[in-house]
Amino acid sequence: MFDVALKSAGASVVLASSSDEKYPPENIIDGNSDTFWSSTGLFPQEVVITYTSMMRMSRIEIACYNVKNVMFQYSKDIEPLNFQDLFEKELDSTDGQLQLEEFPVNNVEAQHLRVVIESGHDHFVSIHKLTVNGTAIHG
């Protein structure tokens, strides 16, 4: 079991709806919650992360701020297409501290993960860290 979404493990961000070069989406998967990706206005916002290979996911953790409605989707295709819903949640506002959420994922197999932020508690939201515990599927 390891963090299959980690940049240093080969995962990459292939799409982001905001990309201020000072707060790029790669900050989500660098394993450091001091760095962050900032949305730059309007909703929905989305980020798509592609794993090095097909992964079996067991748990997703996210550290974010000002996020209200968030939806996770996954795709098994080689290209990041045909996403299916994984789960969706409305998060409470946490004044002055990060929103920390953990979602068990029942061994869903995926090549890509898509995070859609449908609304926020403010005009702008940030994602500081995303961790996906999982294992590579061999053969």
Binding site: D34, S38, G41, D122, H123, F124, H128
Partner: peptide, 13 residues
């Protein structure tokens, strides 16, 4: 407003 909010994001970890 964006600049202000980003400064707030920076204080979190």
């Amino acid at each position: 407003l964006y600049q202000e909010k980003v400064e707030i994001f920076k204080t979190m970890s």
